[in-house]
Nucleic acid binder design. Sequence first.
DNA 1: TGATGCATGTAATCCGTTACATGATTCA
DNA 2: TGAATCATGTAACGGATTACATGCATCA
Lengths: 180, 180
Amino acid sequence: MNIRTLCLGFLSMQEASGYEIKKELESGKFSHFADASFGSIYPALTQMQAEGLLTVRSEEQSGRPDKKVYAITEMGLVALAKNLSVIPARDKFKSEFLFEMLFQKFLSKEHMDLVIEKQHADLTEDLARIEEKRRSNEHNNLGEGPRFVMGYGECIFRAAIGFLEAQCPRLKKSKNQAAE
Amino acid sequence: MNIRTLCLGFLSMQEASGYEIKKELESGKFSHFADASFGSIYPALTQMQAEGLLTVRSEEQSGRPDKKVYAITEMGLVALAKNLSVIPARDKFKSEFLFEMLFQKFLSKEHMDLVIEKQHADLTEDLARIEEKRRSNEHNNLGEGPRFVMGYGECIFRAAIGFLEAQCPRLKKSKNQAAE
DNA sequence: TGATGCATGTAATCCGTTACATGATTCA
DNA sequence: TGAATCATGTAACGGATTACATGCATCA
C-alpha cells in the first residue's frame, strides 16, 4: 500500500491538509501500522488533485501560511475502493530491537537494560495512545473498521508488554510505582 | 539496521553462502522481523569481503555453480559489535491487512472473508515455524538471545491469532476440523 | 518439456526519507 | 534570542526490490 492510497483513505474519513495528515499519522488511528513523511505526502496530494481524485481549498490564516485543505472526490473514492480490492501483502515487521536481542551475547548488561526499557516504554506509549482514542470515542460509536484495528493493536501491544514484564520483572515494579 | 549488519549477524552464527542466507532469512529464526533480497545480499557480501570483514571460500559442487561460502573475521565481529551498540530504532510494523480492515466499509463481504482467512493462515504459519524451530532445538540448549526472540514472536503471533478467532468464530472451527 | 531449485551477479527502477529553503508566531 | 509549531514545497540521496542474464539438474 503506497502513500497515495494512505492519503485517499485518510481523506475518505475527513478533509485535511498535508500537514494535518502527517500529524495524525504519527498519533492517530494509523500510527501503529503506517507512516509517511512530508516529502512524500505533499507531492502525492498535488498529483492526485491534478488527476481529479482530490479537490483543494485554500484556507487563509492570520499570521500563518495558507492551509491547503484537500477533500476526496467521487473519482477518488472509486480509486480508493479499487486499491483496497487487492489481497494485502503479508505484514512486514521490522524490529531492530529483536535483532539486538538475538545477538545479546555481544552486548553489555547496561546496554541491554537500556534497550529493553526503551522497548517497554515504546510499547506502553503505543498502547496508551490506542486506549486514549478508545475512551475519547466511546460516546459516538465507532465504525466496525476502526474498532477492529484498535482491538488488534491493543491485543498485540498487551501481549508484547506482558512478555517483556515476564522476562524482566523489574519493568513491572517501575510500572506499579508510577501508578501509586 | 541495514543488510550489512544483518549478514554479519547471520555469519556470526554460521558460515554460509549468499543463497543460504536468503533462504534462512525467509524461514529461519529471523523470518518474522527481518528480510532481504538477492540484489542486496550479494553486493553486501562482496563489499564486506573486500573490506576484510569476511573471508570467502569457493566450494565446488557437481553439476551446480560453485558455492561461495563466507565466514566472518575478527574485524567483522568488531564491526558487528559496534553496529549492535546503538539504541535500536522503534519497531516498524507495516500492515496492509489492518489498512484494509480499517476501510472495510468499502469492501465486499467475500473479499473481507478472504483477507481475514489469509491473515489467519499467515499468522498460523509463522507461529508453526517458530514452534518447529523450538522443538528441533530443545535437545541442544539454545542461547539466551534466540530463546528470547522466539518467545517474543510466539507471544505476539498467539495474541493476534487469538484476536482473529475471537472476532471470527468460523476460523476456530476450521482449525478444529484440521486437527481431526 | 516446462517448471522448480540451486547458484551468482548486475542494472534499472522505485519509493521514500533527509535535508534544505522560506517565513511568521508564540513561548520560554 | 533561540527553539518549537504551523505550513508548504523541492532536490538530492539512499536503500532496497525487481527484472534480467546465465546455466545445469531434477522432477512431474
